[in-house]
Design a binder for these strands. Structure first.
Lengths: 114, 114
DNA sequence: ACGTAAGTTCAAGACTTTCGAACTATTGAA
DNA sequence: TTCAATAGTTCGAAAGTCTTGAACTTACGT
């Protein structure tokens, strides 16, 4: 039995849930892939390869319920988009800064190496 | 037996750990109190009242190990400061945006935009 | 030395996460 | 329409994390 895909409204977004959702490396990677491309991705395409499907489903539920992504059933798949603008409106700068920080672009002359 | 208070270096900071630490309402509140005042606070003063001490200790450990706070023993207490500048250096804008978003300030025009 | 105050450690129960197995729903082909 | 394949969901169990009371440590003041 598939439940409807529920999305919180702008009002219902909680900063803590968003941070929690982004605190997991797998979920952060999913979000990065969604922000990267312009077109919506299905779950398997947005998730890292070889992630068990049950785990994948769990991660997407957390992202959706935190309000980070919008998921729509399209036939047999679920296509996902980042709720970028809404989150930016509610929590200005947060998602942007996190996404910027999440890519430690290895620029050997600007970064001190480890 | 009390273990030494270990702090990650700048290099060792992980974005995920920082987000995870801030994703808990109690810990976010602690961080807010630390950023609010200029002087370091001991654990009991920084934590919400009536929080069991074992829970408090656990939360401070998570904050410290994520690199968000610096804790120093001062006699019988542990005084804590936010590692604001360091985190800003490593993950620009992240902590600032989260703190700004965490308090829906009554005067929205006083917020500096990034 | 004693009592007090501030934190820490430990252990147990509650809760969460992960993942295989079984399941559902939609599509496309025969 | 029936069948197989595909994309996700649900369930259940094992492993892990969180919360908290109780017992402990450490430092301070008297």
């Amino acid at each position: 039995m598939k439940r409807p895909l529920l999305h919180p409204t702008l009002d219902e977004l909680k900063l803590e849930s968003i941070l929690y959702a982004l605190a997991d490396p797998v979920r952060l990677e999913i979000v990065r892939r969604l922000v990267g491309g312009d077109c919506p991705l299905n779950c398997s395409a947005a998730a890292p390869q070889h992630l068990p499907k049950s785990t994948q489903s769990h991660h997407f539920q957390i992202l959706r319920e935190a309000g980070l992504i919008c998921s729509e059933r399209r036939g047999t798949e679920v296509v996902n988009t980042l709720r970028c603008a809404e989150i930016e409106q509610r929590f200005p700068g947060v998602l942007r800064a996190i996404l910027a920080a999440s890519k430690p672009l290895v620029c050997p002359d600007t970064q001190s190496d480890d």
